[in-house]
Design a protein around this nucleic acid. Structure first.
Lengths: 193, 193
DNA sequence: ACAGCCATGTAACTCGTTACATGATTAC
DNA sequence: GTAATCATGTAACGAGTTACATGGCTGT
């Protein structure tokens, strides 16, 4: 039926199921705010070409108006789009998450460099995690008030809470690794503790 | 200096820093066993083409012998390879992990389908997590005995422990989401509890 | 006036995948 | 003998990226 659309296409469709119609630019912003934490935030260029494809397939309706002197196109999901999205959700196994964890990859081969480098990498990661936690916390706050069962942000809130816990856990893991690395420092010239 | 190699290239270099020399086939197996949990397990074809590139760059030494009637090529990391790996580890910011979490993506737009579908998806995920935990536990067991500071599997063990915790946390998150979904059932025709 | 944001796209390119192809060795 | 595993590749393709290009609108 619907010839296969990349997952990112469905992600865009999904972002448009919250009632409003958005421009490509706004989709990017929304993706940066939420989607990026557990899916990729696509490049602008990809968003535009994906929007093109979805519109051609009739899954989105383009609403081109001219706002002042410039052309602005907003997109809304169509009936067909909602059907396609649902068909995908119900008919495709979700599959296991793919994790591209450069920090873990490098930790794995930590023996190939000095402990100090690995330590620094983990510290950097912890700092970045903190920033991500801040961002996501702010997102979570923005969902309050409409996050109960039956309310529009119910599912986004579930996901945000999941994400917050995930980042918190990553922080703990990084710190545990740091602590474990510290045990090596013993033979390093410094006194332990 | 070394014109950029994709991260997967460094991952392969990294797999070859444990002392032995491996064939492409064996690299794939090792990747399936460990790398796949926090990095992608590359397709065979990519491994071979990556091996080709790394060899051309002098970062790997190919050892082609004929084992019986068939051509078998083993690869070992060279001095230059170790230098390149280390340069990469020390000179490139690790960057934030990229997560492609289809389950979370679909949970986010859970309102676009029936609760039962979402519930089933989460149950499937929990089952897959259990399988992954089993696999990784077995890997972890295989590292015992050489996982103390200074020993060869020190870092792989750190990473495996991290991964085990991560999968356990994911299981908890999925179960929490399931529990929270259960609360919707209330308005569903059934009596609460 | 000028920077920064809003807004939309094209072109070139690379990573990585699937499908295809081949053949030898090992286990049952 | 035949299926599974070992072993190595080629070809076509697609998703997604970076770099480039354009231009209007907004705040200072």
């Amino acid at each position: 039926m619907s010839q296969d659309i990349p997952v990112t296409g469905y992600a865009i469709l999904g972002l448009l199921t919250f009632g409003d119609e958005l421009t490509g630019y706004e989709i990017k912003q929304r993706a940066d705010m939420t989607l990026r934490f557990y899916w990729v935030s696509p490049a602008m260029s990809q968003i535009y070409s994906e929007l093109r494809r979805l519109t051609d397939l009739g899954l989105l309706a383009a609403d081109a108006r001219s706002d002042g002197g410039r052309e602005v196109t907003s997109y809304a999901i169509t009936e067909a789009g909602q059907a396609a999205l649902r068909e995908w959700m119900d008919g495709t196994p979700a599959g296991f998450p793919v994790l591209k964890h450069t920090v873990l990859l490098r930790l794995l081969i930590g023996h190939a460099t000095q402990p100090e480098q690995t330590r620094q990498m983990l510290l950097d990661y912890v700092a970045e995690l903190e920033a991500a936690l801040d961002d996501l916390t702010r997102v979570r706050e923005g969902l309050r008030g409409a996050d109960r069962p039956g309310e529009p942000f119910r599912f986004p809130s579930l996901v945000a809470d999941w994400g917050l816990d995930y980042f918190a856990a990553e922080t703990r893991h990084a710190q545990r690794a740091l602590a474990s690395l510290g045990e090596t420092e013993v033979g390093d010239g410094r006194r332990p503790e």
